[in-house]
Design a binder for these strands. Structure first.
Length: 180
DNA sequence: TACTGGATTCACT
DNA sequence: GTGAATCCAGTAA
């Protein structure tokens, strides 16, 4: 069942958890979301200080938010929080369909290395700034796939951000080989 | 107009 | 484990 824009109106941390196990489709490629990260108005988030780029985190929910980083990579987010600032970063995906296409784009044969990182999955799915600000379901489709039990979700600190390591807003599926 | 740094990845040691 | 690549957005002037 396809997930609607309204599904994203809740809290970013909650949505990040609920996105695990969902199927994501874009053009001819699809996969299962296995790792996510929630962002709100904390210091490490684009939402801490709103700018034209990050304004979408405050103005919308259920929208795609793509930004460019380190001169090389894109990161895919979904905006959340109907009346507040929030977004969920998709960190890793288990590939389902279009695997050969992904392998070509990533110049990589190892299936575990196709989407095991925010920059990697955008490269594999060919997601760029062109998808920024689109509604969920317009180009990128999220649908229910399998139910993940609470006991199968690992909650950890966010990584690589010294300012925010006290936060426990990163989620991934236990015993999954496709996380970053 | 110029400068700074980043929600990353990869190659190399 | 460490460092380079790479360019855009944000900031300050």
């Amino acid at each position: 069942m396809q997930i609607s824009k309204k599904w994203f109106e809740g809290d970013a941390v909650d949505i990040a958890k609920k996105l695990l196990g969902k199927k994501i489709e874009f053009k001819n490629c699809s996969g299962i979301i296995v790792e996510t990260e929630a962002y709100k108005t904390d210091e490490a988030s684009h939402g801490f200080k709103l700018t034209p780029r990050s304004q979408i985190m405050a103005d919308s929910y259920g929208n795609v938010y793509v930004y460019f980083i380190y001169g090389n990579y894109f990161c895919l987010n979904f905006t959340t929080n109907k009346n507040d600032v929030g977004a969920v970063l998709i960190r890793a995906i288990e590939p389902l369909e279009g695997i050969n296409t992904m392998k070509k784009r990533r110049k990589q044969d190892n299936i575990h290395n196709l989407c095991s990182g925010p920059g990697k999955l955008c490269q594999a799915f060919n997601i760029t700034k062109q998808q920024n600000n689109k509604d969920v379901g317009e180009e990128i489709i999220i649908s229910t796939h399998k139910n993940i039990k609470d006991s199968d979700i690992i909650k950890t600190k966010r990584i690589g951000i010294s300012k925010a390591t006290h936060l426990d807003w990163r989620f991934y599926i236990k015993n999954n080989n496709f996380v970053s």
